[in-house]
Design a protein around this nucleic acid. Sequence first.
DNA 1: ACATTGACCTGAGAGC
DNA 2: TGCTCTCAGGTCAATG
Length: 262
Amino acid sequence: MPELPDVEVFRRFLEKHAVGKTIRGVEVRDAKSVDGISGRKFESVVANRRVTKTDRHGKYLFAHLDDGHSIVFHFGMTGYLRSTGNEADGNDGKYCKVLFDLSDGTKILYANKRRLGMVTVVDDAASFIRKIELGTDALSLSVREFRKLLDGKRGSVKGFLMDQNTVAGIGNVYSDEILYQARIHPRRKVKDLSDEDISTLYNVMQDVLTTAVDNDADPERMAGSFLLKHRDEGDSCPRCGGSVSRISASGRSSYLCRRCQR
DNA sequence: ACATTGACCTGAGAGC
DNA sequence: TGCTCTCAGGTCAATG
């Protein structure tokens, strides 16, 4: 479920493998996964362009091209990027939606088990972000801005954290993690948060996201104290030993420890 | 204006 | 073994 940390890992991957190289060819294998334009058009816009830079905003990944266009990737919940050697399609072949053939022989594939998520190409990444009204990236948000965003909100904290138009990058799994570590109940109303709650929430948010990025967004590598590793009803809370519950909050199943989270 | 709910997507895993 | 059912969660449209 690619959220900010996962997408940041994909960005670093793309930065390492694609920047400075030319896209020799593109093969759209599933035109339905290309948003806004036809697969053929996508191929012709992107082909023979050099990748100059990568960027991430929330859960969106951008590959900037030398003519000003940018490729946009969104991973839905099952998307990923991978490189292959030559023919090694392996299991990914089935899920490969778009295949990029780079000038040094590297092949990068955008794969997705479902059609949530998409690839497209835009004239200008910044105006694309404005158009879809993406909020500020969670990792480039100051406490001051964070407080301002919370101000006047009537919904739950969980809904707030997951709203991409307010704070971009946090999804179901990491919102649960942040709320768990901040000891705040997901259904708690934003307006009921104290000043102290807010600063805790902010600090924990930064900490959880950077820790996740530092560990390649791989749950295996994260400390056992992360709720991430105990997302299972009845599993035990790594902090108090109580049992992990599953409830519905903001229309999503949320895992929490009722004892730790009020 | 804002918040919540339901639909979409489709593979994995559980249960029978 | 295989069938059916439920769940996963990111976004968007519809509804409250």
